[in-house]
């Protein structure tokens, strides 16, 4: 009798535990058709700019579905998916495979570059620049200048206090973020903390909160907050931007645009107002799409970039003369 019970228990246990995957959702296979569907569906569910950009994603599916077959190569599949995702016109939409990364970089490649670091080094710095943490710092005598090339490089309080103290008695400070493709938002808030004396509402954000294209959370205020350990910079500030000022830099430009002591000079930022969500497809490829929205203080969607207060281009002939017209405009603005 005891043996019977023991056998029954062991059999039940074995049955249940060996078939646990039957209780789980079916795992999509690795076939091109399945990977295509996963890609389309993830974007359909998570992408935040269909309405704003007027993209009919169902039509995109109808166009691309016939192009996908299970006997196509990995590279051909990748190209088709890349072409499909390209239509989202978003630098935060990428498909990563072991052999390539799909991207849409038209948001800066179709525009003038408006920046040449070489020009700064040879015509302005002439080896007199300082490297202060992530900043390249230069003193024009009456105007301070820092170049910040990536928000992925962390900023410390000491870095900020050095900058604030060094240029405290200057006419102003130029923060050059041209070609800064973004990075961490914590560095955005850190840098912004130097520019505000009290907590200031600088923009709004909202997130996808459901599968429909217009499912979003309520707008949440983005606030720049002073840090008691960071010295407030109370002079005028100019922010230099170009089209390759993207993502976190775009976020910083939204903040800067709301601050009365900051002027934006150069070209519009490249945009990238949506923080990306990620997933892993069944073949191991990584997919990311924007799934939040960012708005300026006057409720303009920042996905397509933040327009400068003073629009200046850096022309080839000026570059040849060794003149950075955008930087010169910033210097003139602060000196007047």
């Amino acid at each position: 009798m005891k043996l019977k019970y023991t056998a029954a228990i062991i059999c039940t246990l074995a049955m249940l535990t060996s078939c646990e995957r039957l209780f789980m959702d079916e795992v999509p296979d690795e076939s091109p058709v399945s990977v295509f569907e996963q890609t389309w569906q993830f974007a359909d569910r998570e992408y935040s700019f269909f309405r704003m950009k007027g993209i009919d994603w169902d039509s995109v599916h109808a166009v691309f579905e016939p192009r996908i077959s299970n006997n196509m190569t990995e590279e051909a599949l990748f190209d088709e998916l890349g072409n499909m995702l390209y239509l989202l016109r978003d630098g935060h939409v990428n498909l990563h495979s072991p052999f390539n990364r799909s991207r849409n970089w038209s948001w800066y490649l179709h525009y003038p570059s408006n920046f040449d670091y070489n020009l700064l080094e040879r015509s302005y710095f002439k080896t007199e620049e300082q490297f202060t943490g992530p900043f390249v710092l230069y003193d024009f005598g009456d105007v301070g200048y820092i170049y910040y090339g990536s928000f992925s490089n962390n900023i410390s309080n000491q870095n900020l206090n050095y900058v604030a103290d060094k240029f405290a008695n200057h006419k102003g400070l130029i923060i050059d973020m041209r070609d800064n493709g973004g990075g961490s938002l914590s560095n955005v808030y850190k840098l912004a903390s130097m520019l505000v004396e009290k907590e200031t509402e600088v923009g709004y954000t909202r997130m996808k909160n459901g599968p429909e294209h217009d499912n979003f959370t309520q707008l949440e205020a983005v606030k720049a907050t002073p840090d008691e350990d960071v010295h407030f910079y109370n002079r005028k500030v100019v922010l230099l931007t170009n089209r390759l000022s993207y993502s976190a830099t775009n976020y910083f430009a939204v903040c800067a645009k709301a601050l009365p002591n900051v002027t934006l000079i150069g070209d519009s930022t490249g945009g990238g107002g949506g923080a990306p969500s990620f997933t892993e497809l069944s073949n191991g490829w990584q997919l990311r799409v924007s799934s939040t929205q960012l708005f300026t203080i006057d409720h303009q969607n920042a996905e397509k970039g933040v327009a400068p207060d003073i629009r200046i281009d850096l022309k080839a002939e000026d570059k040849d003369r060794g003149v950075d017209t955008i930087l010169e405009a910033a210097l003139a603005h602060l000196r007047n």
Partner: peptide
Amino acid sequence: YNLNLNQGEIFWQPVGGFNRVRIEL
């Protein structure tokens, strides 16, 4: 839903809605 760790979702579920089984030997 996706990125916002400040927002959680709460469900109250009877058996069938949330299924959990534990077996010990």
